[in-house]
């Protein structure tokens, strides 16, 4: 029970301070889930993101379910996910009920100007941390560069990149051993 509460509260904290979608959540996940709680490794986080991009639903939610399930099984997956959604539901309900022009308030827009700039820096630092664990030789460096460039200049679905990279991984590693 105590562990479930901890799952709920940790993910509620992450959900309450994530501005800008699943990618913006990454720095928070690394700090809370990997570094503080040891609930997952950097490698697992990358796996969750890769799978999250290929499965239905929101990446943030999928990652919460993965971590929760790993800690406490099915109920853990559900509790962590509800924790993640909880702050949004409360905040949005209040805004929808009371503040009709919240997003037009100058102070809100200014605060978000600042937050957006900080989020870029935070995501960049996350990418560097993850690269140390995943871009470990020439083939992975080539995969990283190719996906980063192609995902920027084309509209190809992330699913395609993830599947092709997985197959390349099997071919390279499997081919070498045999």
């Amino acid at each position: 029970m105590k562990q479930l509460l901890e799952l709920f509260l940790t993910f509620a904290k992450i959900g309450g301070f994530t501005f800008g979608g699943g990618i913006a959540m990454l720095p928070m996940l690394q700090k809370e889930i990997v570094e503080k709680k040891n609930w997952a490794t950097q490698e697992e986080l990358m796996d969750y993101y890769a799978i999250g991009q290929c499965t239905p639903g929101i990446i943030a939610i999928n990652t919460a379910t993965f971590v929760g399930y790993k800690q406490k099984g099915t109920i853990g997956g559900i509790v962590a996910t509800l924790g993640m959604a909880f702050p949004s539901v409360v905040i949005i309900t209040i805004i929808a009920a009371l503040v009709s022009n919240f997003q037009d308030l100058p102070a809100v827009q200014w605060a978000f100007g600042g937050i957006r700039a900080a989020v870029v820096a935070l995501i960049l630092s996350s990418v560097i941390k993850l690269m140390k664990k995943s871009v470990i030789d020439i083939p992975t460096a080539l995969i990283f560069i190719a996906v980063a460039v192609l995902a920027t200049v084309t509209n190809v679905s992330p699913v395609v990149f993830v599947l092709i990279a997985g197959v390349i991984g099997i071919l390279l590693k499997g081919g070498k051993k045999s």
Binding site: D47, Y49, I143, I145, A146, A151, F161, V167, G169, I170
Partner: peptide, 15 residues
């Protein structure tokens, strides 16, 4: 083996 390739792609997508 699949995750070896897939993790690099995952970080590429995040970049």
């Amino acid at each position: 083996y699949a995750f070896y390739g897939l993790r690099a792609a995952s970080v590429g997508l995040i970049a």
